[in-house]
Write a protein that binds this DNA or RNA. Structure first.
Length: 256
DNA sequence: ATGGTTGCCTCGCAA
């Protein structure tokens, strides 16, 4: 079972790119972030005609996540549990083929001296609590998405320049580690222990042509999923296409 | 270089 995650930065602006990538990558489950539209405006038919079921959780202009699956998705949860007052569309979770999968768009958190950073840390605390609950179920779980977290210095082209950024602050990394240390496995890092690789390159300042990126899109696997981990990778070439998203797809393959 | 780019749908905000 191939499970992929991709922050598409607007599904409407990215539709041709996403369809082309789906055809070549052929994931069983595709977890999308930043669809930037309401669920009712999500172009579900294009994906259904390719054989995917669609579950979109959206809002106007910002955020929004989607879960595409070839097999039926059951027990769908819309929104991260733990705060009913949180109206931002950043989380959808379902069971597909016996695997509990989630599409996560974790808050960016910049600027750090605004209310956005405590919102990010609070969101991470809620994610940790929910991730612990999922572990207790002892089922295969894949929590995938744009975490907006650079786990380690080697996941960044210039750690010094990013030292004060919400994606790399020690407090951010500590919250991410706490989730991993519950018992989750970073799929890409497990398969590629030494490799320097990125999943995001800023549109600005020639970051892509200079390969100055950061690795912030992750698939975290519960032990029951990690036992079945066969392969993982990053589809870097997708970032080089016309009208590319600033993120590129990240994926893993679980043994069936 | 307090720069640079993209997408929302407005002329600023978010990333």
């Amino acid at each position: 079972m191939k499970i992929a995650t991709w922050n598409v930065n607007s599904i409407k602006a990215r539709l041709p790119n996403v369809l082309e990538w789906l055809k070549e990558a052929d994931p069983d489950v595709a977890l999308l972030q930043e669809i930037k539209c309401q669920a009712v405006d999500f172009p579900a038919m294009e994906f259904q005609s390719m054989g995917y079921q669609v579950h979109a959780v959206g809002q106007k202009s910002y955020n929004g996540v989607a879960l595409l699956s070839k097999q039926p998705a059951s027990d769908v949860i819309e929104g991260l549990p733990g705060d009913v007052s949180d109206e931002q569309a950043r989380y959808v979770e379902a069971t597909v083929g016996g695997v509990r999968v989630a599409s996560i768009y974790l808050p960016n958190g910049n600027p750090v001296d605004s209310e956005k950073y405590p919102y990010k840390l609070g969101w991470m605390k809620r994610l940790k609590a929910h991730a612990a609950l999922l572990l207790a179920s002892e089922q295969p779980v894949v929590l995938a998405g744009d975490y907006n977290v650079i786990p380690e210095p080697r996941d960044c082209y210039d750690p010094v320049a990013w030292a004060g950024d919400a994606l790399f602050l020690p407090e951010t990394r500590r919250h991410f580690r706490e989730i991993v240390n519950l018992g989750y496995t970073d799929a890409f890092r497990a398969i590629n222990p030494q490799r320097v690789a990125y999943s995001f390159w800023d549109y600005q300042a020639g970051r892509w042509p200079r390969d100055e990126g950061i690795r912030i899109d992750h698939l975290l696997l519960s032990p029951q999923a990690a036992d079945r981990l066969r392969d993982a990778g990053i589809d870097k070439h997708v970032r080089g296409r016309e009208k590319a998203s600033d993120h590129t797809p990240v994926w893993c393959v679980l043994d069936s």
